[in-house]
């Protein structure tokens, strides 16, 4: 698959939130205002990009030669946890302002399904290292797109009369459902029509 095809697949066609339901917890939890939504989105994109490459290296450099493929879940989650911690420390040292913006989201990212999900999908789809990097970044961008759209919808919803039992979470899910309906317009046909497959 070409890089553009991978990009389109993970941002639109297989959007992690709206099609695969990975990372729903932060999607519902952090989408109350658009500022923190952007922060969360960028932090996730950064981490998915870096962890995709690292997990690929760990799998193909260590686990595969030693015949330890079954350890991939444990080793990937360790790589992700360690990396998130490292990123947090580096950002705090280098750029306190960026740390202020992203800091509180970083610990949450370890348990974000997208990060582990894309690392495992990279292995099952047999991507090479560059394709893994592109898919990691695209997965993060797809998440960013969905969470920014969602936060804007929810800011509008604050000002709209909503029945009491539907307040907060239920209406957020229903809005997400309607958004997913719109995203169904993107399907595999898009890639065929663009001549990418």
């Amino acid at each position: 698959m070409s890089y553009l095809a991978i990009f389109l697949t993970y941002v639109f066609i297989n959007n992690f939130i709206l099609v695969q339901f990975l990372g729903l917890c932060p999607f519902i939890g952090v989408s109350k205002n658009s500022e923190s939504a952007i922060g969360m989105g960028l932090a996730v994109t950064f981490v998915t990009g870096v962890t995709s490459v690292m997990c690929w290296l760990v799998y193909h450099g260590i686990l595969l030669p030693l015949g330890l493929e079954y350890l991939k879940t444990i080793s990937f989650i360790l790589v992700i946890a360690a990396l998130v911690q490292l990123v947090e420390m580096v950002i705090r040292k280098i750029s306190p302002s960026l740390y202020k913006a992203l800091g509180i989201f970083l610990p949450l990212i370890t348990t974000n399904c997208i990060v582990l999900g894309i690392a495992i999908i990279n292995i099952t789809e047999n991507y090479n290292i560059l394709e893994s990097f592109v898919s990691g970044i695209s997965a993060g961008l797809g998440f960013t797109l969905a969470i920014i759209l969602m936060s804007n919808i929810r800011e509008k919803l604050e000002l709209t009369p909503v029945r009491r039992v539907f307040k907060e979470v239920p209406i957020a899910f229903i809005s997400a459902g309607l958004m997913a309906l719109a995203f169904m317009a993107f399907d595999k046909g898009l890639l065929t029509n663009l001549g990418l497959v």
Partner: peptide, 25 residues
């Protein structure tokens, strides 16, 4: 068909959650 697709799952979850909120209230 839509209920078995992704969009239907999110919609259903929203309505179920609303139902449980109503029920516990």
């Amino acid at each position: 068909r839509v209920i078995s697709l992704a969009a239907g799952a999110l919609l259903l979850m929203g309505y179920l959650k609303a139902f449980f909120q109503w029920f516990s209230e």
